[in-house]
Design a protein around this nucleic acid. Structure first.
Lengths: 127, 127
DNA sequence: TATATCATTTACGTTAACGTCAAGGTCAAT
DNA sequence: ATTGACCTTGACGTTAACGTAAATGATATA
C-alpha cells in the first residue's frame, strides 16, 4: 500500500492540487497526514477519486457524488442502515441503466445523421 | 407545424423561460418572432432543445453542445464541409460509445457493491 | 548559506449557467 | 379603465467548482 503525495495524486488524475484540496474541503476525502502535516493518499482515497471523476463525467454534481461516496463509505453495520443503503443503491443503478439507454438512443440518432450526410456526400460526388 | 410560445416551451421541458432565453443569448437557438416581437418555437427549435438537454444530462458544457448543434444545423453543402462534418460526427459517436462502456462498468461496480451489502444483510439477519 | 522544490493555510478572483428583479408593452376580461 | 396574464429587454445577483496569489514552513541540493 503505497501512499501518494498530493502532486502525485493530482498528476495521476490530470487535475490540479487545488481540485484535490477542494474535494477535501467539501468532505469528499480525508487523507492521512505525515508528521509534518502533509497529505497522503491511500488506495482507498484514490478509489474515491476515481468514483468522483467518473461521476463528474456523467453530469453528477459534487453534492450528488458526495451522497453516493459517503453512502458506500461509512460503516453501514445496522440492519436499517443496510436496508436503506441497498434501496438507495438500487435506485442509482436504475438511473444508470436509464442513462445507458438514452446514450444508446443518442448514438443511434447521431449515426442516422451521419448516414444522411454520407448520402449527401455521395450525391455531391456524382453531381 | 404548431409553433409554441416561450412559456409553453419552458413547461414542455420543465425549465424556466430564462433558461430558454439564455440559450438564445449564447447562440444556440434562433426562434421566429411574431409581429409584436414574441418568440415562437418551431419543431426544429424544439428538436434542438431536446438535443441540448440530452447533452446536458451527460455532462457536456453548453459550449460543447453549441459546437455539436451548430454542426448538424447549418447548411453543409460543400464537399469539404461535409467531409469535416462526418469526421467530427464519427469522433463524437466514438466518444458516446466510450461513455456507454464506462457507464456499464460503473453499473457493474455498483451492482457488485450491492451484492456485498446484501450479503452483509443476510449475515446480520442470522447473527 | 542560498536557491529550489514541495508542501501548508487563507482568502480573494473567476466563469458558467442561470435566478431575480425592474420597467415597460400587448391583449383579453371584468 | 384597470386588473391580470403573457411577453419583451436590460442588468445585477448567485452558486458551484475551482484558479490564483500571498505568506509561510520543511527538505534537498548546489
Amino acid at each position: 500500500m503505497k501512499l501518494k503525495t498530493i502532486t502525485e495524486t493530482a498528476e495521476l488524475f490530470g487535475v490540479s492540487t487545488r481540485t484535490i484540496r477542494y474535494y477535501e474541503e467539501i468532505g469528499l476525502l480525508s487523507p492521512a497526514r505525515t508528521e509534518k502535516n502533509q497529505r497522503l493518499y491511500s488506495n482507498g482515497e484514490l478509489a474515491k477519486l476515481k468514483l468522483i471523476f467518473r461521476g463528474k463525467r456523467y453530469g453528477f454534481s459534487l453534492d450528488e457524488i458526495k451522497e453516493m461516496v459517503l453512502l458506500f463509505d461509512k460503516d453501514r453495520s445496522g440492519r436499517q442502515q443496510l436496508l436503506r443503503t441497498i434501496e438507495y443503491g438500487k435506485r442509482r443503478v436504475q438511473e444508470v441503466e436509464g442513462k445507458i439507454k438514452e446514450l444508446q438512443e443518442m448514438k443511434e440518432e447521431m449515426e442516422g445523421l451521419l448516414d444522411e450526410f454520407t448520402e449527401k456526400l455521395s450525391q455531391t460526388k456524382r453531381g
